[in-house]
Design a protein around this nucleic acid. Structure first.
Length: 434
RNA sequence: GUCCCGUUCGUCUAGUCUGGUCCAGGACACAGGAUUUUCAUUCCUGCAACAUGGGUUCGAAUCCCAUACGGGACGCCA
């Protein structure tokens, strides 16, 4: 049997992280099984501008690297893929129910007659689940438009969906759907109800209002899409061998629905940030530079210098959102020295340290990492101090910061002239405080 | 309220199907420590869990039941 799965979002104007995870599990399963991943826009009963709202989702999908085989923009044999354009299909299926006398009209709406028999929901994650639908429910509103339960099932039939992979919040709805599949004489697909994503703090599932609930926010905060995707893979699924950072190809190879957890997972943004940091650190240099340069495009600097700065910062950077601040002092000569930090550095006797190093800078031309290390080492030996006594002070004088990339790399990249100027000015500026 | 699903460290999880190798493993976070190169990196160490009560069994995190707790669904929303 050909595997055909679908992600069927409603274009609400945002892309919820839970929806993204549902899409991801569908996509992973399709890719794992060599099946088809279909994107269907459930835009019934929506007045807003569908175009823009759909774009938010399509952009988010592309950003996370999830491609679809059928759907908006790519087409397919089962189109159209917008429910708002499929009324003819729904009417056709409604006719089937009419002929079988499964529906009736009341208050202008069309209701479906439930059997009130327990329905089997054959769930690949939870096992067999039985649930009985007690009340007839609406298929068409009195204004003539079809509702979710009906169009969802009809489209799954028409699009030959083999596996319905969706959030557990739909498990209870499934008894309605199974009744409809049966009444329409269709094969009931396999179900896989995946656990919900709970909010980081507090109770309940994550909702659009919660911080970190929207895919576009992660994009805005400069997260790497492959990091978010990797984290999402691990929310409810794991390779079971303690691996966490995994190339997506490997996840595709291993992913299967029977390995998906049953219990809900709480979203942990600290773990996500940690994974993002690892992805940033492990990025190939050319990609790191490319992305870094885009983020620093407002800075007027020599290209070669900019690239060198970026290159030495990669190992310490945790997220691209911090990048601009992390490197700003490399490109600004007017450093501000925080008074409080100045006073905590007093113990190193900054004026003396800076003076000693400046003396060396005047006479040295080799600014290689190794030579700088040698110089600091010798200064230390000569004055009975340790390298750190110099490094703390000098970093502060050169950058106005207490943290940054490797000290020797930083000095090397700044170069002799810049270092000399900055140290001289640091002596003037800090003189009163030191 | 009714129905459905779930319950291993604070969090994500491995182990549960096929009971013994689990006084429960990994990761994040947290706390200590290390590096004659500093820091937000890296490395090491530590802290920390089988919801509770019954049962089955020589033996249960693993099987069964009950309770508690958590989540979800009960819309002419999707």
């Amino acid at each position: 049997m050909e595997v055909r799965v679908r992600f069927a979002p409603s274009p609400t104007g945002f892309f919820h992280i839970g929806g993204a995870r549902t899409a991801l599990f569908n996509w992973l399963y399709a890719r794992h099984r060599g099946g088809k991943f279909i994107l269907r826009i459930e835009d019934t009963d929506l007045e807003r501008n569908i175009r823009e709202a759909t774009d938010v989702i399509l952009d988010g999908m592309r950003w996370l690297g999830m491609d679809w085989d059928e759907g908006p923009e790519v087409g397919g044999d089962c189109g159209p893929y917008f429910q708002s354009q499929r009324n003819a299909v729904y009417d056709e299926y409604l006719e089937i129910l009419r002929r079988k006398d499964c529906v009736y009209e009341r208050d202008g709406a069309i209701f479906f007659r439930v059997s009130q028999e327990p329905q089997l929901i054959d769930d690949l994650i939870r096992g067999p689940v039985y649930r009985r639908e007690e009340k007839d429910f609406v298929l068409y509103r009195s204004n003539g438009t079809p509702v979710f339960h009906f169009v969802n099932v009809v489209d799954d039939i028409a699009m030959k969906i083999s596996h319905v992979i969706r959030g557990e919040d739909h498990l209870s709805n499934s008894s309605k759907h199974v009744e409809l599949f049966r009444a329409l004489g269709a094969t009931v697909p396999k179900f896989a109800h995946i656990p919900l994503i709970l909010k980081t703090n507090g109770s309940g599932k994550m909702s659009k209002r919660d911080k970190g609930a929207l895919v576009e926010d992660y994009r805005g905060h400069q997260f790497l899409p492959e990091a978010l995707r990797n984290y999402l893979c691990l929310l409810g699924w794991s390779p079971k061998d303690n691996r966490e950072i995994m190339p997506i190809e490997e996840v595709i190879r291993l992913f299967d629905l029977c390995d998906v957890n049953k219990n809900n997972a709480r979203f942990d943004d600290e773990k996500l940030s940690h994974m993002n940091a690892i992805y940033v650190k492990n990025m190939p240099l050319d990609r790191f530079l490319e992305r870094g340069k885009i983020l620093l495009s407002g800075i007027d600097a020599d290209k070669d210098y900019l690239e060198k700065v970026l290159a030495i910062c990669q190992e310490k950077l945790r997220s691209f959102e911090e990048l601009k601040h992390f490197v700003s002092y490399f490109f600004a000569e007017d450093l501000e020295y925080d008074a409080e930090l100045c006073s905590t550095l007093k113990r190193y006797d900054p004026v003396a340290r800076i003076g000693e190093f400046l003396g060396e800078v005047e006479s040295v031309t080799d600014f290689s990492e190794a030579n700088l290390e040698r110089i600091i080492g010798e200064l230390g030996k000569k004055h009975g101090l340790r390298a750190r006594d110099y490094i703390h002070t000098l970093r502060f004088a050169l950058s106005g910061r207490t943290v940054g990339p490797s000290f020797y790399k930083m000095v090397g990249v700044m170069g002799r002239e810049r270092v000399r100027k900055r140290l001289s000015r640091a002596l003037e500026k800090g003189a009163s405080q030191w």
